[in-house]
C-alpha cells in the first residue's frame, strides 16, 4: 500500500514533465545498455579494451558520412526548389497555351519522369550505376569513389526533395492566394509574401526527415568503397578481428546521431507550429514516417 501510494506520488510529479521523464527513460536505457555491455565483456564475448582503443578510428569515417550527407543534401536543395516549382506550377502554365506552354511541357515531363525514376528504384541500384560508370570513365583516380558516391546521393535526394517542395508549394491553399489577390497583390508578390513563407513552414519537417533518411542512405556508400561508417564497421571487423565490437560501436554512433536529431526535429516542429497552418496533428500518419515512399 505504502509503496503503491508513493509510486503514485512520483508519477504525479512526472506526469506533466515530459523532459524529465524522457531524461530518466534515456538514462535508464543507457544504464541498461552499459550493464549489457559489461556483462558481455565479463563472459568474454566482447572486449571493452578493443572498443576503447579503436573508438578514435571511427572519427574520420563519421566525418566522411556526415560530409557526404551534408554536401548532397545542400546541392539537392538547390536543384530541388526549381524542380518543385515546375512540378507544382507547371500544369497551370501549360493550360495557358502559347509559347509558355511549349516551353513548360518538356520541362514538366522531364522533371516528372526523373522524380518517378528516382523514387521508384532502390538507392543501392543508383549508387552501383553511378559508381561503375564513374569508375570506367576515370579509372585509377583515388577520389572517384567518394565523389561518385556523393553524386549518386545527390541525384537520389534530388528526387525526394523535389516532391517535398512540390507538396509544400501545392498545399498553400487557394483561399490564401485568393485573399492575397483580392488585396491587389501581383502574382510575384503572392508568391513572395504568401506561398513562399507558408510553404517553407510546411516543408521544414519533411525536409529534415529527408536529411535523416539521406544520412541512413549514406551507409550504402560503404559498398562502393567509400570509407564511411558502415565501411569502417566491416574494416574493423575484418582486419582487427573484433567484428561484434566494431558493429556495436558503429551502431552506437548512428543511434547517437539519428535519435537525438529526430527528437530535436520533432520538438522544434511542435514549438514552431503555426496554429491552423498544415495539419492539426504534428506530422500526419505518425511522427517520423519515412518520407521515402512512392506517394507523398
Amino acid at each position: 500500500m505504502g509503496v503503491r501510494a508513493s509510486a503514485r506520488k512520483v508519477w504525479k510529479v512526472l506526469e506533466n514533465r515530459p523532459l524529465v521523464r524522457s531524461t530518466i527513460a534515456i538514462a535508464s536505457l543507457l544504464a541498461l545498455a552499459g550493464l549489457l555491455l559489461a556483462s558481455l565483456a565479463e563472459v568474454k564475448l566482447i572486449s571493452l579494451g578493443f572498443m576503447a582503443d579503436n573508438a578514435s578510428f571511427l572519427l574520420v569515417p563519421a566525418i566522411t558520412s556526415l560530409t557526404a550527407t551534408m554536401v548532397s543534401f545542400a546541392v539537392g536543395i538547390v536543384g530541388a526548389i526549381p524542380m518543385g516549382l515546375i512540378r507544382s506550377f507547371g500544369p497551370r502554365l501549360m493550360k495557358g497555351g502559347g509559347r509558355t506552354a511549349l516551353l513548360t511541357a518538356p520541362l514538366y515531363g522531364g522533371v516528372t519522369a526523373y522524380i518517378e525514376a528516382i523514387r521508384g528504384t532502390p538507392a543501392l541500384v543508383q549508387i552501383f550505376l553511378v559508381a561503375q560508370v564513374s569508375g570506367i570513365l576515370f579509372p585509377g583516380n583515388p577520389n572517384i569513389p567518394f565523389l561518385g558516391g556523393v553524386l549518386a546521393l545527390t541525384l537520389n535526394t534530388l528526387g525526394y526533395q523535389a516532391e517535398v517542395f512540390r507538396a509544400g508549394f501545392q498545399s498553400v491553399s487557394q483561399t490564401q492566394i485568393d485573399g492575397a489577390k483580392a488585396i491587389g497583390m501581383r502574382p510575384r508578390q503572392v508568391f513572395a509574401h504568401i506561398t513562399l513563407p507558408q510553404g517553407t513552414r510546411l516543408i521544414t519537417l519533411p525536409l529534415l526527415n529527408e536529411w535523416l533518411s539521406l544520412f541512413k542512405a549514406s551507409a550504402l556508400l560503404g559498398i562502393v568503397a567509400v570509407s564511411e561508417l558502415n565501411w569502417a564497421a566491416g574494416y574493423l571487423g575484418n582486419n582487427r578481428s573484433h567484428p561484434i565490437e566494431a558493429y556495436i560501436m558503429v551502431s552506437a554512433v548512428y543511434l547517437a546521431i539519428i535519435i537525438p536529431l529526430g527528437k530535436a526535429v520533432g520538438y522544434w516542429e511542435r514549438r514552431h507550429r503555426t496554429p491552423g497552418l498544415g495539419t492539426a496533428e504534428p506530422t500526419p500518419a505518425g511522427r517520423g514516417v519515412r518520407p521515402r515512399g512512392l506517394t507523398l
Binding site: 551507409a219 561508417l229 558502415n230 566491416g234 567484428p243 558493429y247 551502431s251 543511434l255 539519428i258 535519435i259
Partner: peptide, 26 residues
C-alpha cells in the same frame, strides 16, 4: 515498444542487416 521503434528506426537498415548476420554467425 518505444525502445524497439527508436533502435530499429535509428540505424541504417544495411548496418542492421550486417549486424544481424554477424551475430547469427557468431
Amino acid at each position: 515498444a518505444t525502445t524497439y521503434v527508436e533502435l530499429f528506426r535509428g540505424m541504417p537498415p544495411i548496418v542492421l542487416i550486417a549486424f544481424a548476420v554477424l551475430i547469427t554467425i557468431v
